[in-house]
Design a protein around this nucleic acid. Sequence first.
DNA 1: TTTTCATGATAAGAATTCCTGATGATCAAT
DNA 2: ATTGATCATCAGGAATTCTTATCATGAAAA
Lengths: 302, 302
Amino acid sequence: MINFTLRQLRYFEALARYGHFGRAAEAAAISQPALSMQIKELEDSLGIALFERGPKGVRLTGFGEAFAERAREILRSVDELEDLARASRDRLVGRLRIGVIPTIAPYLLPTIIHELTRANAGLDIYVRETLTNNLIRELGDGRIDAAIVALPVSEPSLTEVALFTENFVLVRPVADAGRPVPSADMLREMRLLLLEEGHCFRDQALSFCNIPSARPREGLDASSLSTLVQMVGAGIGVTLIPEMAVAVETRSASVAIARFDEPQPARTVGMVWRKTSPLARQLLRISEIVRESAAALPTPVA
Amino acid sequence: MINFTLRQLRYFEALARYGHFGRAAEAAAISQPALSMQIKELEDSLGIALFERGPKGVRLTGFGEAFAERAREILRSVDELEDLARASRDRLVGRLRIGVIPTIAPYLLPTIIHELTRANAGLDIYVRETLTNNLIRELGDGRIDAAIVALPVSEPSLTEVALFTENFVLVRPVADAGRPVPSADMLREMRLLLLEEGHCFRDQALSFCNIPSARPREGLDASSLSTLVQMVGAGIGVTLIPEMAVAVETRSASVAIARFDEPQPARTVGMVWRKTSPLARQLLRISEIVRESAAALPTPVA
DNA sequence: TTTTCATGATAAGAATTCCTGATGATCAAT
DNA sequence: ATTGATCATCAGGAATTCTTATCATGAAAA
C-alpha cells in the first residue's frame, strides 16, 4: 500500500531542489537524519528510487524527475487551497442563499445585492422569495442560509436580529386626498383591500384594525402590493402598504398616500439564521450592511 | 500557519461524502473520535468551518463545498502519482540514456532499440555514440545511464556484465580470396588499415598483431569501419573488422572475408553502469535483452 | 412531559510516528 | 594514509494519532 504524506512531498521537493541532504534539511528546518529517513520511507513506500546517491550529492533518477513534476503540481494546489482558506476566513465567500418575504424583496433587494457584492467580490448570492413559513422551513432544512422576515419569528433554533422598523401608510384614491386620516376603527368599516392568506403583512394589517384574521372576508385578496395599489387606483377600496414600498408602487398609480396618527401601524423587519450556522459572524456583518442599505432608502414624504 | 495533511484531506472527503461522522469514520477505517479530532484540527488550522453540525448529521458549508472540490482534485492527483509509481516499479520508464561505441552502434542498435521499446512501451531511449573514454566519463557524470563497450573497463565504480564475444575477421581484396589466411605475424608485415586513435578496436587489432599501439604508423587512419572496408575494396590494403559488422559493411564493397585460424582474434562486448545506479535491476534485464538481440544477429558464413 | 435514541465532542492512556544528536560507512581529495 | 564531506543508521525522547469510555445535546417516542 503506497501512502505518502504531504510532508514527504515537501521534503522531497527540497531535496530535489538542493541535491544535497544537508542543505535541503536546513531549508526544510529539520535535521539531516530526519530528512534521510523521510526520503527513504517515501522511496520504500513507492518501491522505486527517487534519487541516486553519490559522494558529492544526490541526483534525481528518471522516475524522480517525473515524480518531481507532479509533486510540485500537487504542492502548488495545496498552497492554493490554503490561500483560499486564508482569503475566506473573514470574508464571506462562495454561496450565500438568502430568503426574503415578498413584501420586502422588491424594495430592498436591489440595494442590498449591490452592496453585498460590492463588499464581497466573489460572493454568489441566491435569493429565494416566498412566504415566511416557507422560509423558516427551508432555513431549518439548510436550503437557505438566512432570511429577512418580519419579527418575531420565535423559533428557538434561530438567531434573530432586528434590522429596522417601518410604518404602514394608507393608500386611498386621489379623490380622498384631503380628507382626514381614518383611525384604526374607522378603517375597519371601510373597504380594506388585503394580500392573500399566508402573507404576514396581511395579518399585521388586520391586527392594526383589530380584526380577527380568521374571519372570512368579502372581496378578492391580491397576491402583491403592486396589485393592491392598482386596485385602490381603480377606486375599489383602500389599503395599507409598508412605507418602503411607497416609492416603487405609487410611481405609476394615481393614489393618495397618508400617514396614520400615532401610534402608527408598523412592523419590525429582521434577519434570522440557524443558531448552529458557522456563518454566524459573517451573517451578523451582513445584517449590518442590510440595515445601512435600508436606512439609506428614500423615505416617502407622505 | 495553515498546515493540513493528506490524511486530513482524506478524512474530510469521507465526511463530506457521508455527511455522518460515524459512517465516514467506518469508511475511513478509524474510530469516530479520531475522525472528529482530525476534522476539528483541520478546521482550526484553516480558521474556518467546513461543516455545519446538526443533530441528524453534518452538512458542508459554502466554503466547505469549495474546499471539497479542490481537495478531491488534489486527492486525485495523489492517486495518479501513486499509480505512476506502481507502474514504474518494475518496468523501466521515462528516459534511458545509453552510450554505444562506434564499432558496435550501427550493427546492434537497430535491433536493440526495437526490442527495448517493444518490451517497454513508454520508454524513451536516448543514444550516445562516441569513444569508450567519453562514455566512461559521461557515465560518471550521470549524463548517460549505461554504456555498451568492449570489456574490460576496469572502473571500480562501474558494474560490468559481458554480453557476447565476437571474433574479428580479415577483410582483403577479392583478388586475394583464395590465398591462405595470414597469421598474426604475417599480418604485421602487410599494409594494415586501422581506425583513428582512440577507438578501442584499433588497439585490439594492433594487440592481435603484437604491434605496440604507441608506435607511429605510416598511412591514413579511417574514422569508421565503413571507410576501412571501402579502402580495402580500392586495393589500398587489408583490415580487420568485428564479425558483427560483416553483413552491413561488405554489402556494397567487393572485398573478401576470411576467418583467422584459432586462436581467432576477438573481443568481449559488455554493458556497464554505475554501481550506485538505482536502475541496476532494470539495466540487468536490459542487458539480457541486448544479449539475446545480439545472438539473433546473422553470423557471416565467411 | 419524561424517556430513549442518535449524534458529535471530550478525556485518558496506548500506540505510532517523527525528530534530534551521536555515530558509522563510504568515497574522494589531499 | 589522512582528512573532509556526504549520507545512513541508531537510540531515546517528543509529538502526534488512535482507541475506548464517557459526556452533552437535541430529536423522536412513549
